[in-house]
Amino acid sequence: MSSKNEIWIWAEQRQERIEPSSIELIEKGKELAELLSSSLAAVYIGGSGERIEELFEYGVPKVYLLHHPELVLYQGGPYSILFSRLVAKYQPQVILMSTTYLGLELAPRVAALTGAGLTAHCVDLFVERHKDGHILVQVVPGWGGNLMVKIVCPERRPQMATVKAGIFEKPQRRPGASGEVVSNPVRLDELDWRVKAIELIEEEEDRSLEEADVIVCGGWGVKGAGVMDDLQKLAETLKGAVAGTRPLVDAGLIAENQMIGISGKTVNPRLFISLGASGASHFTTGFLKSKVIFSIDQNPNAQIFEVSDLGIVGDLKKVLPVLVDELERYMQSRG
């Protein structure tokens, strides 16, 4: 099979370990490859590629490998040029990257260098017929309610998208699986080193939200109702984590890294409680996979109820204190 028109994912590595957010792209990539009668391949740029088997084990049949000890750390200039040259050489039709800090930089750089069309923060991807062929449809949240927007790139190739991390699931791992490695030589002196990463400093990451069983999430309505304390109490009672929508973050009531949504975190707890949030798709995208969603809002027509297993229509000022009391009693009775 010819290499042209493949579906590519960028396998982002950190100290030669593949980032979980890149693994999440594999199933979707395979699905698109099937729909487009093509095949999936990953592009790996790093120090040695000593762990690329992981990609095969998660189902990638082919890896383009570019490695050099000087490329262990993400080097923006060199990575962009290497990736773009690979694109020119093999002409993939689709390239997916995750919305990590580095994916959000590399994707637009490669798009600018190759003239590709690029869509950011996609929450779904599928294929539609277009003229005498097929086209990649890239779905992003739209304005107002549950409207989603379809974006396409009619002419230019490749079609590139960054995919919101946490939306797609990791595939099954099959230990021992193997695949094809296509090595391409790296010549450092041909690359742009005007900017150079010199050191990676690890910092503790707060993963309390991702790991929480229960999340209590406040929306703008919480501020108006003046029930921030009750929200905290509710989270404590349920041994859950506190989160918020963008307006609450902007108002400084919730920390930036506790924001849920397309620009924030994606979570899927056992119970997600939304208080006083209208349910914009930018927000709901971040927790749709929660097991149970329970919402309170005073507006019976709020979009949030469309995504809720259970809703209460009411004023938070009246409802929330009662909820906290009753749940405290309930939790105590459970010991």
């Binding site: 069309g117 690029l118 539609e128 739209g142 409207l147 379809k150 974006i151 396409v152 790139c153 230019r156």
Partner: peptide
């Protein structure tokens, strides 16, 4: 612009 909106739908 290489990209454009091709449609809007209700999720």
């Amino acid at each position: 612009s290489p990209t454009r909106v091709s449609g809007i739908f209700e999720r």
